[in-house]
């Protein structure tokens, strides 16, 4: 483990039992993530991205191997690692503002400060007009923004984001990407971000980790050294995009073949 690592994933395996069969969701994963790095995880559906994020969050610990944060082994979830869940998971009985305020209330922040912070976050995510609504009355994109606001409110040094912008339209998505980059630069957070979009990964990340499908391993670990703000139309950007597409296509076809074989056996 290096001294500068904020998150260190050391030889992590994760095996699920399902219906008497063992699913090797993660195999020999090693990642050293320095403080303040923005890392994107890319890979085909079912390759173990959420599993890895859940392990770092402390919800489901590795079968073998270790994950440490600032040198301390992770044994349980905590507000130092705020997570945006793939399923949003807003509390349906709380209004938008109550959802966002909840983490601050748990922290014991005083009322006026909570109100100010919530108002600021809602304004930032264009949710102010909807603050009194319940999640059932929101669109998918709005729910996703509330989930993001709820985690931003925590102000945790590490943010784990599982496809947080998946349900957004292109414009909102770009706005939020820029907003996230601003927050990240300003507050020096370490971010582990799952996405299906190569372009999103290249727009955001310092480094892109591509995973393989069953077993989930790290296929390659590519630094993205483009200057920010990044121009998605630039030749350098597109060259990288092409390389990554190639890598992902390989993995995707392995995935499809695996599914095909599975189907044939059934």
């Amino acid at each position: 483990m290096s001294e500068t690592s904020h998150i260190s994933v050391q030889n992590v395996h994760k095996v699920f039992e399902s219906g008497g069969q063992e699913v090797h969701a993660l195999k020999a994963i090693n990642l050293e993530i320095p403080q303040g790095q923005f890392v994107c995880l890319l890979g085909p559906s079912g390759c173990g991205k959420s599993t890895l994020l859940n392990a770092v969050a402390g919800f489901s610990l590795p079968t073998t191997g270790l994950i440490t944060v600032e040198g301390a082994v992770i044994t349980e979830p905590g507000p130092d690692r705020g997570m945006v869940f793939q399923e949003y998971a807003l509390f349906p009985w709380m209004t938008v503002e109550q959802n966002v305020a909840f983490g601050l209330q748990i922290k014991g922040v005083e009322k006026a400060a909570i109100e100010a912070k919530v108002a600021e976050l809602l304004a930032m995510l264009n949710l102010t007009d909807f603050r009194k609504r319940f999640p059932k009355d929101l669109s998918g994109g709005m729910r996703q923004r509330v989930a993001i606001a709820r985690v931003l409110a925590l102000d945790s040094p590490i943010m784990l984001m599982d496809e947080p912008f998946g349900a957004l339209d292109a414009l909102t998505r770009r706005n939020l990407q820029d907003e996230l980059l601003r927050i990240w630069t300003e507050l020096q957070k370490t971010i582990l971000f799952v996405t299906h979009s190569i372009e999103e990964a290249l727009y955001l990340a310092d480094r892109t980790v591509v995973m393989t499908y069953r077993p989930g391993t790290v296929k390659c670990d590519i630094p993205v050294d483009l200057p920010r703000p990044r121009d998605v139309a630039s030749p350098a950007f597109n060259a990288l995009k092409k390389d990554l597409s190639q890598l992902l296509m390989e993995e995707q076809s392995r995935h499809n073949q695996a599914e095909f074989r599975g189907a044939a056996v059934d």
């Binding site: 979830p77 507000p79 705020g82 997570m83 869940f85 399923e87 909840f102 983490g103 748990i106 709820r150």
Partner: peptide, 24 residues
């Protein structure tokens, strides 16, 4: 999933009970 969010936000067992389990 609600309990996981609660734990992620750092909720104590009591808070989990009164603010998540009970309303749910």
């Amino acid at each position: 999933i609600y309990l996981r969010v609660g734990r992620n936000l750092g909720a104590s067992r009591l808070t989990q009970f009164t603010r998540i389990i009970l309303p749910a």
